[in-house]
């Protein structure tokens, strides 16, 4: 038997899986061939050393790791955790739920209180002038940059009376409204802003003010837009006696 054949049989020879005749031939060859004998000894030594390797053990319990993993899996996400029966709740459940509920309550409270604050802000009515300015400040005396009454700028005068004005004033009772108005260069009211007063009750008066017509203010003969404040009150106001 040739060396190459013997070496290919070494594994089966070692396991005793070769037929008796082949086993005898391999044994004879190994006894007479130093190289094949050495190879068999190396073979035996290698496998003996492999078998002698100590068994390794994990210092941490695998069972505990699996137990933890399965427990986490069993808990399930979100709603499953919230709606499972109380008797299956774990100690972990309550400590995590309480802060969650507190955060939810704080956020809801903040939303409600901010919403109430928003209601208290006074409503502002601004008439669209149809003119928009971007970038630069509009020229003085225009509707976008009105002048204020002064020694050189007169207050605009009412052009015509309104038959409903006296009725609206009569229906005011003791209420007062503080209003800012802008009268444009054509004598039309370009903006009306309620600065103080009940917006609902002021609505008819604001509507009338928007339709008032004025003789426009003039500066050196040129019409200019003017902004001024009006206090409209049902209470009789008299100048202090000095």
């Amino acid at each position: 038997m040739k060396c190459r054949t013997v070496r290919s049989h070494l594994s089966s020879y070692r396991d005793g899986e070769l037929p008796a005749e082949t086993t005898r031939e391999v044994s004879m060859h190994i006894g007479s061939c130093a190289e094949c004998g050495r190879r068999l000894r190396e073979y035996d030594s290698a496998l003996g050393r492999l078998q002698a390797l100590p068994r390794l053990a994990c210092e941490e319990s695998i069972a505990a790791r699996i137990h933890t993993h399965l427990e986490v899996e069993m808990r399930g996400p979100g709603l499953t955790l919230l709606f499972r029966p109380a008797w299956s709740a774990r100690p972990l459940f309550l400590p995590s739920l309480v802060p969650a509920v507190m955060v939810l309550l704080i956020v809801m409270g903040a939303v409600i209180s901010l919403d109430r604050e928003a209601d208290r802000l006074p409503p502002v009515y601004v008439r669209n002038t149809g003119q928009q300015w971007y970038g630069r400040v509009p020229p003085s005396g225009t509707e976008g940059n009105p002048l204020f009454p002064s020694a050189t700028v007169s207050l605009p005068r009412t052009r015509q009376g309104d038959p409903f004005w006296s009725q609206a004033l009569a229906g005011m009772g003791q209420r007062s409204f503080f209003i800012e108005m802008v009268v444009g260069r054509d004598g039309r009211v370009s903006a009306v802003t309620l600065l103080d007063g009940d917006s609902f009750q002021a609505a008819p008066i604001l509507d009338m003010l928007r339709h008032q017509r004025f003789e426009p203010s003039r500066v050196r003969g040129e019409p200019v837009a003017v902004s001024f404040y009006r206090l409209i009150s049902g209470t009789e106001v008299r100048a202090p006696t000095t």
Partner: peptide, 28 residues
């Protein structure tokens, strides 16, 4: 079975941490 699973995984991979993870995955 955890002893034999860990030993085989550790010998095959040569890394104790990997062997732990593999052992856990095996039993799962």
């Amino acid at each position: 079975h955890e002893g034999l699973v860990y030993n085989l995984a550790a010998r095959m991979l040569g890394d104790p941490e990997e062997a732990k993870d593999v052992s856990q995955d095996v039993f799962l």
